[in-house]
Design a protein around this nucleic acid. Structure first.
Length: 862
RNA sequence: GCCGGGAUGGCGGAACUGGCAGACGCAGCGGACUUAAAAUCCGCAGGGCUUAAACGGCUCGUGGGGGUUCGAGUCCCCCUCUCGGCACCA
């Protein structure tokens, strides 16, 4: 690899120069040719007889440079795209940029570069990197979300959301990251910290915010998961948990001694069957009733304040769930509607206002948290469910005292009035119905999923197209006035409030309704809005008067294969599912889900740890490409392990792939000439009949077909491209092993030509540069992307003979070689005739002989 | 705590529905070519024992313990470690 030696050889042995695999030379040549290659463009709908196939990799944030995770992601998608082209599909394989976002502003502050400039130059650089690596993207459809041509449609969608009542404004407690100086969505808070600043604790603040009613689609977002069979179960589970549906009931407890205007507390429970065990009511510190219950009692008041603070702090730190439970008795009582019992009303720090009703009935006997709390404060623990029929002994390992949330079918209610003796599942049914009939409760469904807060107090994002008029109130910007342009030359600082609020030319506007003066909304949209629908825009990226063309979208959608990191399992993938459903309801698209299949690739690590600047273990794609070439870099990313697993980057492994490509390259270099004039066989044998093949040639032919079979199956099935690459390596190794015959010109030229063409075709999805070079060398002119993927002939792939493993009592002792498809009796006979078997069996009784067709014989002796 | 991955040579990893564990690659060792080195080509290669050596033979071996089976990396039960996700959600 050293340059010194290279020069020397070039000088002293010019004839060897050609045999040397020089990726830089090859890749630069093809890189230039592909710059304007129409083969990379998808055909417009119905202009091609090919079936459509939409393969999409998640669009990157233009942070400055590609990292190995990108390379891996795109290498997977690109291999698939190329394979699908070769299999006759009209492939849409686009790329774009998730170009709004905070890092551009941080860079602006740090380096005094305008965000737009910083972003666009990053895009230019990263696009050049992608092209250098040879990804076959249709760049005519490129999208950058920070350009008005794109974000205009974010604003348009926002107006539609507003029109449909799906966007609304409310003052609410929000997650505030002091580092970003902006609000975060719930989804962007990780362990109480900002998703971008893992060290920065999120604070709670009250602000007027725009929200999108994602919860309108809770049920459909959940139900749709069952149908997404092409999505990883892991992602579906994560989304199910995130949506967090629970069925339960709302139950009213009358407050003893009415308070002004309010006389009941409504609790939410999923376990109405335990209601006879409720020994207190617990309210969240923020519950609106608390203030009234506390009244003028200063002691109680400060106690509640403490509880509230404890909860807020726990939330900020992210260890809600582990803090010590505290509470305070309000001195008041409420009435259990089932048994008319008076239970004390408490306020507790473990009750959350934003789930259910912010009030619970506490059942210490059958809920761990309530149990802990009751023990601490000496509240009654009353068992109302037994885990089994009375009179039956406890099963081994079953606790005598069932202080557990029993849900088994044969669990039994006790001490529950007329509901005693019912199983708890029956009880849930009957008690819910009873509560509804008597007007003090009703069945309900609660979700954990919240509406999506999209307001960001940042500059580099899509302006929210709304106006505030003193006379008319909140007024949407008329569609014809879109886009609301993001002003340039804005002074960006991290001081509080939206930067746009300090741009008078932006803020001051005219009310479209009354013509009076109005103030513009100065917040921008969460960048997850941008990425919620970008893949639709690719189908017609230049459309000027609409976000998309429905007919074109309907041709391409749903996405056939979406590929990206699992870190987007919740955020991006829930928002974009929501957006699709919203678009469908607008009549813009007809698909319910954006993507039929989703693949989440594993992370790229180095030395067992995530690559990071602080650890100093970052491997730059540029370095790899410079050292070993793009083909080796991307092929290694597929070879090192299967795409779904974590990949430990080893430079020596890249070098190994480079060596392999060199072997393949040299093989074709040496043998291409021999076949130029030979008939180009459509069958693998060309002009030569089967009978004339030497054993070695027959073996090569067989291996060829076996290899095509393996790779085709890997693409269609499990995507274990690591074994696909290994299979090609094995094949090339066999070609070298036959070099005595091939080198001596003893191989039929038809076969030799076929072998080389198909070898190149198989390399094409993984190492497109060297494949293109060798393809040309073989005298082929048609571009590889439009050349059909080779078919395999099962008859030619079949072995003539099979070596059966022979075991004695399950231990390998020998092998016997028999013709393929020998009947079982023959295999058995040959195995028993084997010397080692006879020796082992000598004087013993053969109990059984097991023959596994095509694999082994096991002789069981006693 | 709950849910879901994972644990296989010196290393990355193969073994697809139970059937020859370690494909392929890296590192290593030996040889060919070379004045020499690099590059290239060929070969060896899980551990232990046996053998002067080679061949061969025996034996142990897929995180640990048990089980099912003619046969288990693969299936079942229990446990350890590890990585991800969720976590007072009532």
């Amino acid at each position: 690899m050293s340059e010194i030696t290279e020069t020397k050889i070039t000088a002293s042995q010019p004839e060897q120069r050609e045999l040397r695999y020089e990726p830089q030379r090859i890749e630069e040549k093809w890189h230039a040719r592909w710059e304007a290659d129409p083969a990379l463009y998808a055909a417009e709908p119905h202009t091609s007889k090919r079936k459509k196939y939409y393969v999409l990799e998640m669009l990157p944030y233009p942070s400055g440079a590609l990292h190995m995770g990108h390379v891996r992601n795109y290498a997977i998608g690109d291999a698939l795209a190329r394979y699908m082209w070769m299999n006759g599909y009209n492939v849409l394989h686009p790329m774009g940029w998730d170009a709004f976002g905070l890092p551009a502003e941080n860079a602006a502050i740090k380096n005094n570069v305008p965000p737009r400039q910083w972003t666009l130059s990053n895009i230019a650089h990263m696009k050049a990197q992608m092209k250098r690596i040879g990804f076959a993207y249709d760049w005519s459809r490129e999208v950058a979300t920070c350009l008005p041509e794109y974000y205009k449609w974010n604003q348009w969608f926002f107006l539609k959301l507003y029109e449909k009542g799906l966007a609304y404004r409310k003052k609410s407690k929000v997650n505030w990251c002091p580092e970003c100086a902006t609000v975060l969505a719930n989804e962007q808070v990780v362990d109480g910290c900002c998703w971008r600043h893992e060290e920065t604790q999120v604070q709670q603040q009250e602000l007027e915010q725009w929200f999108v009613r994602t919860t309108n689609y809770s049920e459909e977002l959940l139900a749709g998961l069952d149908k997404l069979e092409g999505w990883p179960e892991k992602v579906r589970t994560m989304q199910r948990n995130w949506i967090g549906r629970s069925e339960g009931a709302l139950i009213d407890f009358k407050i003893d001694g009415a308070i002004s205007g309010t006389e009941k507390i409504t609790v939410f429970t999923t376990r109405i069957d335990t209601i006879y065990g409720a020994t207190s009511i617990q309210l969240a510190p923020e519950h609106p009733l608390v203030a009234e219950l506390v009244g003028n009692d200063p002691h109680l008041h400060s106690k509640v304040e403490d509880l509230s603070r404890e909860q807020a702090r726990a939330r900020e730190v992210g260890d809600v769930g582990t803090i010590e439970k505290h509470g305070v008795f309000t001195g008041r009582y409420a009435c259990n509607p089932f048994n008319q019992e008076k239970v004390p009303i408490w306020v507790a720090n473990y009750i959350l206002m934003d789930y259910g009703t912010g009030a619970i009935m506490s059942v210490p006997a059958h809920d761990e948290r309530d149990h802990e709390f009751a023990q601490k404060y000496g509240l009654e623990i009353r068992i109302v469910i037994l885990p089994r029929r009375i009179g039956q002994p406890p099963a081994p390992g079953e606790p005598e005292s069932p202080v557990l949330p029993y849900t088994e079918k044969d669990s039994l209610l006790i001490n529950s009035g007329e509901f005693s003796q019912l199983s708890n599942l029956e009880a849930i049914e009957k008690m819910s119905a009873f509560a509804e009939q008597n007007g003090f409760g009703k069945r309900t469904v609660t979700y954990r999923l919240k509406d999506w807060g999209i307001s960001r107090q940042r500059y580099w994002g899509t302006p929210i197209p709304m106006l505030y008029c003193e006379k008319c109130g909140v007024v949407p910007v008329p569609e014809k006035d879109l886009p609301v342009l993001l002003p340039e030359n804005v002074d960006i600082t991290l001081q509080g409030g939206s930067p746009l609020g300090r741009v008078p030319g932006f803020v001051n506007a005219t009310c479209p309704k009354c013509g009076g003066s109005a103030r513009r909304e100065t917040d921008t949209m969460d960048t997850f809005v941008d990425s919620s629908w970008y893949f639709y825009r690719y189908t017609n990226a230049k459309l000027a008067d609409r976000p998309l063309d429905t007919a074109t979208v309907n041709y391409w959608f749903p996405i056939d294969q979406y590929i990206g990191g699992v870190e987007h399992a919740i955020l991006h993938l829930i928002y974009s599912r929501f957006w699709t459903k919203f678009m469908r309801d607008l009549g813009l698209v007809k698909n319910d889900e954006p993507a039929r299949r989703l693949f989440t690739q594993g992370m790229v690590i180095k030395d067992g740890a995530k690559m990071s600047k602080s650890k100093g273990n970052v491997v730059s794609p540029d370095d790899m490409v410079a050292k070993f070439g793009a083909d080796s870099t991307r092929m290694y990313a597929l070879f090192a392990t299967s795409p779904d697993r974590e990949l430990d980057w080893q430079e020596a492994g890249v070098e190994g792939v480079h060596r392999f490509l060199g072997r393949a390259y040299r093989f074709v270099m040496r043998n291409a000439g021999a076949v130029h004039n030979a008939p180009s066989g459509n069958g693998s044998r060309g002009a030569t009949g089967s009978a004339e093949l030497s054993p070695k040639a027959r073996q090569i032919e067989r291996k060829l077909h076996q290899t095509i079979k393996r790779i085709s199956e890997d693409f269609q099935g499990r995507w274990h491209f690591n074994t696909s690459v290994a299979a090609i390596m094995e094949f090339v190794n066999q070609l070298y092993a036959a070099d005595d015959e091939i080198g001596a010109g003893k191989f039929p030229p038809g076969l030799l030509g076929d072998v080389q063409r198909k070898l190149v075709l198989m390399l094409a999805p993984f190492a497109p540069y060297v494949a293109a070079e060798l393809w040309e060398m073989l005298g082929e002119t048609k571009t590889l992307l439009r050349y059909p993927w080779p078919a395999f002939d099962p008859a030619l792939a079949k072995e003539d003979e099979i070596a059966y493993a022979v075991q004695i009592n399950g231990k390998l002792r020998s092998h016997v070689i028999v013709p393929a498809e020998s009947p079982e009796v023959l295999v058995r006979e040959r195995a028993l005739a084997d010397d080692k078997v006879r020796a082992a069996v000598e004087g013993k009784e053969i109990a059984k002989v097991i023959v596994v067709a095509g694999k082994l014989v096991n002789v069981v002796v006693r």
